[in-house]
Design a protein around this nucleic acid. Structure first.
Ligand SMILES: [Mn+2]
Ligand SMILES: [Mn+2]
Ligand SMILES: [Mn+2]
Ligand SMILES: [Mn+2]
Lengths: 218, 218
DNA sequence: ATATATTGTTAGACAAGTCTAACAATGGCT
DNA sequence: AGCCATTGTTAGACTTGTCTAACAATATAT
């Protein structure tokens, strides 16, 4: 139906859109590493296909149709990541790049089999919710660790970055989803935090790291 | 490295080439359902990349490099088919189309995992040999059923067509790889054959069908 | 309010991969 | 040898998806 390129634009749109489903051309351009004029002309084509509403000099607005299509691609991505980890012995840091490719496979049956073999999982290996067949996503109340105050104890539920580099950083410190994190202190100057990984170690995380750790009040 | 389009041309080249590794532009065009001028210009580009030797008005000749690249794609295709059948509960008629897509996934690790999980299989679900990591293929001595004489008993080892339509034809008659086939008679007029599927049934197969059944003397 | 920086748009070019129409070479057949 | 069907080639057009350069609108800061 849609080309691989179009599917990647759709995913980026859904990931970037705010509460009003709006995305600026500039943000899209940066996310996709595609120059603004190219993104601009693609958004005009998306408007033809009714995937977005386009008005000059305004952010594009993802339509219900666009949102649904994007959700289905993210569903395939996350199911794939789960399948690779659970059924093919991959580690969580190895799967994102492969899923970026497999999410574009055209075969409903292939993803239905995955889903069934996995027992209809609700979350991917990085803690992100897997949209259901209708595009519905479980609403989570995760917040980034950097917004937590000193003294709080929280549970690590998901990561906001599934790049190999970041996940290797966590692997190197034996940090896993489900770990309890206690905020010992927070440095006002640079936002870095001293964190006790309960039962494991004590670490200092930069603000950049803390933003990528999604937690829930324990 | 190579685009999906290029990989599909490579596969077609390997499937069509004769003992001298030569393929006519016309045959390639028909196999790929791409018009001759397009194929012609792609073969000139392939010559630049040293995948084929190109001389005007002569069949192109697949180079050693081209042959190796093509083998690796066929390896990924057949490993995928085996994985889908053995690990994902697909039937043999469902896997070819999906494998046509997954064969293009860029991830050596992905196919290594498949290979290991399958226990390094030598044949795919349709009886075709899986090339090894160096592109080497097990030499088989299968012949199409239509060349067998009346009275002969042979074993069905592979199919020369893995389309859903043909495999459903076999499913409908409960014919599987490994079945014994006895040639009861052969009609000289149209090449159709009366075949006993030992222990199952007796069938009349047109020459078209017989050409697609690859057998070995029992 | 005006200058400046950022963001968005237009125009034109380009590569990959396809097509059709027209023409050229090859090879088989009489 | 000459005719004709088949096969191969050239030329030119088109779509998708990208780019750079130049320009226009909007937002920000003084
Ligand atoms: Mn991912
Ligand atoms: Mn993920
Ligand atoms: Mn196949
Ligand atoms: Mn096969």
């Amino acid at each position: 139906m849609y080309s691989v390129v179009e599917e990647n634009y759709l995913k980026a749109l859904l990931n970037l859109c705010n509460a009003d489903d709006e995305v600026s051309i500039n943000d899209l351009s940066k996310r996709l590493n595609i120059k603004m004029p190219s993104v601009n002309s693609m958004m005009k084509r998306f408007a033809e296909k009714e995937l977005v509403a386009y008005e000059s000099y305004k952010p594009v607005k993802l339509s219900a149709k666009g949102k649904k299509e994007a959700s289905m691609i993210i569903r395939k991505h996350r199911l794939t990541e789960m399948f690779l980890v659970e059924k093919m012995d991959f580690n969580w840091e190895e799967v994102h790049e492969i899923a970026e490719q497999i999410e574009h496979i055209q075969s409903p049956l292939f993803f239905e089999k995955m889903d069934a073999l996995l027992g209809y999982p609700k979350f991917d290996p990085h803690g992100s919710p897997i949209p259901d067949k209708n595009g519905k996503v479980i609403k989570t109340s995760y917040v980034p660790l950097n917004v937590c105050e000193a003294g709080k104890v929280v549970t690590l539920k998901a990561v906001a970055d599934s790049s190999e580099a970041f996940l290797r950083f966590l692997n190197g410190r034996s940090i896993l989803l489900g770990d309890q994190l206690k905020v010992l202190s927070k440095e006002p100057f640079d936002g870095s935090m001293q964190i006790e990984v309960v039962g494991k170690s004590t670490e200092v995380f930069s603000e950049l790291i803390c933003e990528k750790l999604l937690v829930e009040k324990a």
